[in-house]
């Protein structure tokens, strides 16, 4: 395939995957099992995305798992007590960046 064909194919398929649930169930009702699935799936997908985003960080190396563990602990604690998402996210990202740079320069 040439580049134009590749871009068109990937683009159309990506949109089709996103649109399929809306197309299938905009007029007809969802079957009961799918309604149940759609109610229970959000929290499970958020859990998946947490693991998914950690999979791409440098968990493989023992030194690098420390920034993740520390930052996620700070994040959980601050969010639990403060309930301010932006503050929790900025603070834990700061912890992560700091630890990552300190640890990667000292090992």
């Amino acid at each position: 395939m040439n580049n134009l064909q590749i871009l068109a194919t990937v683009g159309i398929l990506t949109f089709a995957l996103r649109a399929l649930p809306f197309v299938l169930f905009s007029k007809r009702a969802m079957p009961l099992w799918l309604i149940k699935l759609s109610k229970r799936i959000p929290v499970m997908i958020l859990g998946l995305l947490v693991i998914y985003s950690l999979k791409d960080t440098r968990l493989g190396s023992p030194t690098y798992a420390l920034p993740e563990i520390a930052a996620l602990s700070v994040l959980a604690l601050v969010q639990w007590k403060g309930r301010n998402p932006l503050v929790s996210i900025l603070l834990s990202t700061g912890v992560y960046v700091l630890l990552l740079q300190v640890l990667s320069s000292s090992f």
Binding site: Q79, P85, I89, Y96, V97, Q101
Partner: peptide
């Protein structure tokens, strides 16, 4: 990249945490 992309992990984590 210097680790700022962790903000996205943190975002997913916070939204998961709040849902829980």
């Amino acid at each position: 990249t210097n680790g700022v992309e962790f903000a996205m992990t943190a975002l997913f984590f916070v939204l998961f945490f709040e849902a829980m």
